[in-house]
C-alpha cells in the first residue's frame, strides 16, 4: 500500500467507486429508500470532497479555513450564473467552479498568508459573511429570494438524473482523494508538512513557503468549488442562507479533524462516518441538533484525540507489549 503508484491507486479508487455504484441501489432496496438512497449518498460524497479539500490546506499545511461554506457557495453560484446565461453540461460547470474557487482561494491567500496563520483563518471567516452579502445583493443570481435551477427531466445513459449527479460526485471523490494522496507522498507534501511543523525551519531548508501555501489554498478552494458545482441541480431551489449554512462550515472542519488530518484517509473516514450518521439522524432529529452533535464531537476530538480516529487506531497498533514506544 505504501509504495502503490498514483495510477495504481487511481485504478483501485475507480474499482472501489464502481463497487459503490453497484452496491448503493441494493442498500436502497434493503432500507426501502428507493431513489432517496442516491440523495443521501450524494450528500455524504459531497462531504468527502469538502473534507478532503479542506484537509489539503488545513491538515497538510496547518492553515485553518473557516470559510468552506463560502467556497462551496462560490461553486454553486458559478453554476447558477452560467445556468442563467447558457445551460452547460455539469462536468464543464465543475471545471468552471474549480477555476473560480481556486482563484478566490489564491486571492485570499495572497492577501493574508504572509502573516500568521490566525489572520488567514479570521479573513476566511469574514469572507464568508461578505460573499453572502454580495450574493444577497446580486439580483442576477436570485439575490436573497434565491434561484430556481430546473434540472432536465432525463439524461442519457442513466436511470435518473439523481443517479447521474451521484455518479458525478463519486467521480469527484475519486479525483479529490487521489490528488490528496498524491500530494501527500510528493515533494509538495513534504513541503506542506514542513510548513505545518515549523515555517521558519522550512524556509531555512529551502522550502518556498509562500508559494506552497498559495498552491494549497488554490487547490483547496478549487475542490470546494467543484463540490458545489452540481449542487443547484441537486437541490433545485437555492437560497443564500442555505448554501452559506452552518452545516458546510462546521462539517468540512469537523470531518477531517474527527477522522485525522495527517493523511488522506482521515477526511475520507470522517466524512463517511459523520456524513452517514447525519443522514440517518436527519430522518429522526432536526438539523440544529445535527449541527450541535457535530460541534460537540469536534470539541471532544480536539481535546481528547487530536490526531483523530486514524491516530487512535495507529496508537492501538503501535502500543504492542514489548515494543519500544
Amino acid at each position: 500500500m505504501r509504495t502503490m503508484s498514483t495510477w495504481m491507486f487511481a485504478l483501485v479508487a475507480c474499482v472501489v467507486a464502481a463497487a459503490v455504484f453497484f452496491f448503493v441501489p441494493f442498500i436502497g432496496k434493503i432500507l426501502g429508500w428507493g431513489d432517496y438512497i442516491y440523495i443521501a449518498s450524494y450528500t455524504v460524497l459531497q462531504y468527502v470532497v469538502l473534507a478532503t479539500a479542506w484537509n489539503i490546506l488545513g491538515g497538510y499545511t496547518g492553515y485553518v479555513n473557516f470559510g468552506s461554506a463560502a467556497f462551496f457557495a462560490v461553486g454553486t453560484y458559478t453554476t447558477v450564473f452560467f445556468h442563467k446565461l447558457y445551460p452547460l453540461p455539469i462536468p464543464i460547470l465543475v471545471v468552471l467552479a474549480a477555476v473560480v474557487g481556486g482563484l478566490i482561494g489564491l486571492g485570499m491567500g495572497y492577501l493574508t498568508l504572509r502573516l500568521r496563520g490566525a489572520f488567514f483563518s479570521i479573513a476566511t471567516l469574514a469572507m464568508a459573511v461578505v460573499l453572502q452579502t454580495l450574493i444577497v445583493n446580486w439580483d442576477f443570481v436570485g439575490g436573497s429570494r434565491g434561484a430556481y435551477v430546473i434540472r432536465p427531466a432525463s439524461i442519457v445513459l442513466f436511470d435518473s438524473y439523481i443517479q447521474y449527479l451521484f455518479v458525478i460526485m463519486l467521480a469527484l471523490v475519486v479525483i479529490a482523494v487521489t490528488v490528496a494522496r498524491t500530494i501527500e507522498r510528493s515533494a509538495l507534501g513534504y513541503g506542506f508538512a514542513a510548513i505545518r511543523d515549523d515555517e521558519l525551519a522550512a524556509e531555512a531548508s529551502g522550502v518556498p513557503t509562500l508559494k506552497l501555501k498559495l498552491i494549497a489554498t488554490a487547490l483547496s478552494g478549487a475542490f470546494m468549488g467543484m463540490a458545489g458545482a452540481p449542487f443547484p441541480y441537486f437541490i433545485g431551489f437555492l437560497q443564500p442562507s442555505g448554501v452559506f449554512g452552518l452545516e458546510y462550515a462546521v462539517n468540512s472542519i469537523a470531518m477531517p479533524i474527527i477522522g485525522g488530518t495527517a493523511t488522506w484517509i482521515g477526511p475520507l473516514v470522517g466524512a463517511i462516518l459523520l456524513g452517514t450518521l447525519q443522514q440517518v439522524a436527519t430522518v429522526t432529529i432536526s438539523s440544529a441538533v445535527n449541527v450541535l452533535m457535530v460541534g460537540l464531537l469536534l470539541v471532544f476530538f480536539v481535546i481528547v484525540a487530536p490526531n483523530g480516529l486514524v491516530g487512535v487506531v495507529q496508537n492501538l497498533f503501535r502500543k504492542k507489549p514489548g515494543a519500544p514506544s
Binding site: 485553518v64 490566525a118 472542519i253 469536534l298 480536539v302
Partner: peptide
C-alpha cells in the same frame, strides 16, 4: 494553532 482554532470554532 489547528486544534485550538477548531476548539473555539466548535
Amino acid at each position: 494553532a489547528l486544534s485550538g482554532l477548531a476548539f473555539f470554532f466548535g
